[in-house]
Structures are given as C-alpha cells and as structure tokens.
C-alpha cells in the first residue's frame, strides 16, 4: 500500500513537470521526430544529466541500487525500430500518452487503447520471440563505464559536456 502511494505521488510530480515543460503534446513529439523542435530532447537530456549525477552519487555512498537491463542486440534494435514507427504514428509515448489525456488531448486515448492491445499481442508472441530474437546478441547486463573499463565519473562529465554542446547548438539554430 505504501508503494502504491509512493507511485501515485511520484507520478503526480512527474506529470506536473512534463506538462510544465510542454513535452506532452503531439506537436512537440512530432516536432522532434521531424527535427523541427527539440523541446523533448532538451527535457529528456536535462532529466538524464541530473538523474545520473544524483543516482551515481547515492550509488557510491551505497544508498541505492542500480537497475541495469540486459543488452540483447536483437530485441533492442528490432524493438526500437518497431517502436519508432509506432511513435511516429501515435505522436505520444506510453508515459506521455497518459499526461496528454490529462491535458485534454484526448486523441491519446486511442493510442492508449492501441497500446493495451499491443501489449496483449506481445504477450502472445513472447514464447516465439524468446526462441528467436531474444537469442541474438546477448551481451548481458553491461554498462558503458564497465565496457570501457573506466570510472563512471569519467563518462558522466563527458556526457554532460556533449549534452551542453548540443543544447547550445539547438539554441543557436532556434530548435
């Protein structure tokens, strides 16, 4: 029960900020995919930068656990390509679709319905995929610092510098 309340409250804050950042809208999501408006990229990367610094600090202090998903090239690459096609058609992603409805953009409801159907279809296909796609290129639970054999405090600043340079370029180009 406590976890359910944590989930609700965390979602409230996150949904509030997503709406304030104006990233819930179809026009913003398609704007990024059409390379016309990088608002959602700015929001996502800012979130990632702050999150990675804070979470790795807490990790070094032994206060949190990382949640690393397995890198399996087959399903990640093929799944991402399929996701991209769907995202381009829908114009919302799973989390933002709920926020979009909260903002009154109720065309997202059709997408939510579609996503529940898509999840059901995936559950049907899962045993077959497990025997095929999921066996292609399983690299296990790896991270960038681990693969390169360096401290995460080398990778994090490099990531931040690259992101800031990209932000500056977006602003210069009016994206």
């Amino acid at each position: 029960m406590k976890m359910l309340i944590y989930g609700l409250v965390t979602g409230l804050f996150f949904g509030f900020l997503l709406q304030k950042g104006r990233v819930l809208r179809y026009d913003k999501q398609l704007g990024a995919l059409r390379l016309m408006d990088m608002t959602i990229v700015k929001f996502m990367l800012s979130s990632v930068i702050v999150g990675m610094v804070g979470i790795y600090l807490l990790y070094d202090l032994g206060m949190v656990k990382l949640s690393i998903k397995a890198t399996i090239l087959g399903p990640v690459i093929i799944g991402a390509l399929i996701f991209g096609i769907g995202w381009g058609l829908l114009g919302y992603c799973p989390g933002t679709s709920m926020g979009a409805v909260g903002e009154g953009r109720w065309d997202a409801l059709w997408g939510i319905l579609g996503m529940v159907v898509g999840a059901a279809l995936f559950a049907e296909a899962y045993p077959m995929l497990l025997r095929t796609v999921y066996t292609w290129g399983d690299l296990g639970k790896i991270t960038v610092p681990e693969v390169l054999g360096v401290s995460h405090w080398i990778i994090i600043p490099l990531f931040i510098v690259a992101a800031v340079l990209m932000f500056r370029w977006f602003e210069k180009k009016g994206l």
Partner: peptide, 21 residues
C-alpha cells in the same frame, strides 16, 4: 487521427516491450 493513433499505439507498444523499454 483516431485510427492512426490506435495503430501507432499497437505498433509502439509491441516494439517497446520487445526492447524491454
């Protein structure tokens, strides 16, 4: 728009689940 959003939703979720995202 409704049909495109629905089909897009089906496709997007199938891909997202495959990539475990």
């Amino acid at each position: 728009r409704a049909l495109t959003a629905f089909v897009g939703g089906v496709v997007a979720m199938f891909g997202a689940r495959m990539a475990d995202g």
